[in-house]
Write a protein that binds this DNA or RNA. Sequence first.
DNA 1: TGTATTTATGTAGTCAACTACGTAGTTTTA
DNA 2: TAAAACTACGTAGTTGACTACATAAATACA
Lengths: 157, 157
Amino acid sequence: MSNVINESGILAISTRLQRLADSLRKDGQQIYKAHGIDFEPKWFPVIYTLHLKDTMSVMEIAAEIGYTHPSTISLLKELEKQKLIRSRKDRQDERKRLLTLSEKGQELVQQMLPVWKRMEKALTALTNTTNNLMAAIAEVEAQMEEKGFYERERGIR
Amino acid sequence: MSNVINESGILAISTRLQRLADSLRKDGQQIYKAHGIDFEPKWFPVIYTLHLKDTMSVMEIAAEIGYTHPSTISLLKELEKQKLIRSRKDRQDERKRLLTLSEKGQELVQQMLPVWKRMEKALTALTNTTNNLMAAIAEVEAQMEEKGFYERERGIR
DNA sequence: TGTATTTATGTAGTCAACTACGTAGTTTTA
DNA sequence: TAAAACTACGTAGTTGACTACATAAATACA
């Protein structure tokens, strides 16, 4: 752990958030690997979405997972290459491309469900401290919704 | 805000951390701009370190800010181009390159000190909710130190 | 109806971190 | 004291997100 980042306190908060996110993502990667599952943590939002909703367009998925559409498109491209999802044109609206899980994708989800349960337990144990991280994130997101960092700084007397 | 990311709960925690980090960094950028200061939030750890320690080698800075040395080198290169820092070889050990703030760098720090104060206030207001985010991060970091996400998942019965 | 606007998708290039690997001094040791 | 090992620094290429721009289909409106 770094000295300056701790001592400079809250000013380095985005660096610390980033670092925490990175190491959780990397551990996630290792966990799938240890279970013999060929899956990247970054695929989770798309796969989980299609598991719940069955058929969605590119823009719908992007909105649902909260990514920009270019990022979403590149994820979808990767998942299609992995044969985890399939796409077809919408007959009603030919601008749209509709995505669904493939057979392989559905099987993979079934295989991952118990692993997701285990991950949830581990993450809960990890983050359920005096100040709960998930709750803290939700609270800060709500605060930002109300008034962002920029507006708040501008408002300091 | 995204539905799936919220509903899938803790499994998407790294995505949410990342997103929060990004938006704080972007707002930081805007704040410097609004104060007419030509400064990137990512430069903060290096500049703050050199402000405190005066003279350090590349590896010392990397260790201090907790980045890998290639990342640090590219930051230093940028800062040298901006003329905010200066470098010279170490006479004792010619492998080492010693960095210090330039005149311009020192002046910039003086200009930024009050802005950092304001940012601290705004960030404190933003994050000081029921579950304090800074405290939660520190607690989770400590938990990870003790036993990481990977080890915890492996240990689930 | 044909033109303007909006919407859905795609492409190119950027950014800030990383890992892997290479080179050149320094230190240790047989 | 020369070879081996280590340390400091640098470069190249990757990753996973982004913004800006382009295109094509659908819709609105004069």
